[in-house]
Computed example of a mutant assay.
Amino acid sequence: MKYMTVQQVRYSGELERFDERLDELMNALLDLEDMDPAIEDPDLAATLTTGVVDVQMITEADDPAEAMVKALCFLRSALHSIGDATPGWETQRAVMHVAPADDTDRLALHG
């Protein structure tokens, strides 16, 4: 089954470089997408003044928990590929939403 996942994380570097780092992250996500058939359509939305980033993708998985794990690993790989460290980010700063891809109205995105 396909799930839409949205992971919200916060960039902790200098905000002056945030826009540049977003470009690097998006390129890394697209590169990794080519190698992983379980991931489709990665995309980013960000607030440049706060460093908050929503990373969205479609994930093929058996259930929502597996979709979250795949999306988390995919984002972590992309972050590592651009030279960012990720220890603790997935539990300290991250928020994740998951819904069936054909029913994304169920995503509770409130910010």
Rank of each mutant, 00 (worst) to 15 (best):
D62M: 07
R10C: 09
G51K: 00
V69W: 02
R106L: 08
I58T: 14
E16Q: 15
P64K: 03
A101H: 10
L75V: 04
L25H: 03
M26Y: 07
S77N: 09
G13W: 03
E40P: 04
A99T: 05
T104A: 13
R106G: 07
T91F: 10
A101Y: 06
A71I: 03
M1Y: 11
A28R: 03
P37W: 06
A85M: 08
Q56Y: 10
R93K: 09
M68D: 02
R76S: 13
L29A: 03
L79N: 01
M68G: 01
E24H: 13
P87C: 09
T59Q: 00
M96G: 08
A101R: 10
I58K: 10
H97Y: 14
Q8R: 15
E14M: 09
D43C: 10
K70Q: 01
V9M: 11
L72G: 07
D102K: 12
A45G: 11
N27L: 14
K70M: 01
D102N: 15
A67F: 02
L25V: 01
V6E: 00
A71H: 03
L79S: 01
D36C: 08
D36I: 06
E33L: 13
E14R: 06
K70A: 02
P100V: 04
A108N: 14
G13K: 05
D34G: 14
L72A: 10
D102T: 09
R10L: 12
F18A: 08
L25D: 02
D36N: 07
